[in-house]
Amino acid sequence: RPRTRITDDQLKILRAYFDINNSPSEEQIQEMAEKSGLSQKVIKHWFRNTLFKERQ
């Protein structure tokens, strides 16, 4: 599977949600997927990776 490139606009959407809640529900993930055009799997990975980076 090729690597997914996240655009600046998509990143703004993900960051806005992350700043509010770094552990989103399935409904929130689905909402982000619809708004951003990214798959739910990509969003879950982004949140997991970003949370890991923030904790270091």
Rank of each mutant, 00 (worst) to 15 (best):
A33D: 03
I6H: 04
R48H: 13
P2V: 14
K44I: 04
E34S: 06
I20N: 13
D8W: 09
L11H: 06
S36W: 02
I29A: 03
D9N: 13
D19G: 09
L38I: 05
V42G: 09
W46L: 04
Q30F: 02
P2S: 14
H45K: 13
R15I: 03
E54P: 06
S23K: 12
L38N: 01
Q40G: 06
I20R: 12
K35M: 03
R48V: 08
D8R: 06
Y17N: 13
L14E: 00
E34W: 04
R55N: 04
Q28Y: 04
T7N: 11
R15N: 09
S23H: 15
Q10M: 03
A33E: 11
Q30W: 03
I6N: 02
K41T: 08
E27C: 10
N22K: 14
S36D: 00
E31C: 07
K53D: 10
S23N: 12
S36P: 00
K41L: 06
A16T: 07
L38Q: 03
E31K: 14
R15C: 02
D19F: 05
G37Y: 02
K53H: 13
R15P: 00
K41F: 11
R5G: 11
S36K: 00
K12D: 05
H45T: 12
S39W: 00
S39V: 09
I6A: 09
R48A: 10
R15G: 08
R48L: 10
E54L: 11
E34G: 13
N49Y: 06
L14W: 00
I43P: 00
D19H: 03
F18A: 11
A16D: 11
G37N: 13
Q10W: 00
L11D: 09
R55M: 05
P24D: 00
A33T: 13
K53P: 04
D8K: 12
Q28C: 04
L38P: 00
N22C: 06
P24V: 03
I20E: 13
I43N: 00
D19T: 08
D9E: 12
T7Y: 02
E31N: 12
N21S: 10
I6P: 08
D9A: 14
M32T: 01
F18V: 06
K44S: 09
R1T: 07
D19E: 14
S39N: 05
D8Y: 04
M32R: 00
A16I: 09
N21H: 08
K12G: 07
H45P: 05
L14F: 03
E26G: 06
E34I: 05
M32K: 00
N22P: 15
I43E: 00
L14C: 01
R55E: 10
E27Q: 15
L11V: 06
D19V: 09
F18N: 04
R55F: 07
Q56H: 03
F47S: 03
N21I: 08
D8S: 13
F52N: 15
Q10N: 08
R55T: 06
Q28M: 06
Y17S: 04
Q10K: 02
H45W: 13
M32F: 01
V42D: 14
H45V: 10
T50M: 14
L11I: 07
V42L: 09
Q30Y: 14
N49G: 08
P2N: 15
Q28L: 08
Y17P: 00
E26T: 15
K44P: 01
M32S: 01
R48C: 10
A16P: 11
I13L: 09
E27G: 11
I43W: 00
N49I: 13
Q56E: 00
N21F: 05
F47E: 01
F52K: 14
L51M: 12
T7K: 03
K35D: 03
F18H: 08
I29P: 00
A16V: 05
D8F: 10
M32N: 00
Q28A: 09
T7Q: 02
E54F: 04
R5C: 15
W46Q: 02
Q28I: 14
Q56W: 02
H45Y: 11
R3F: 06
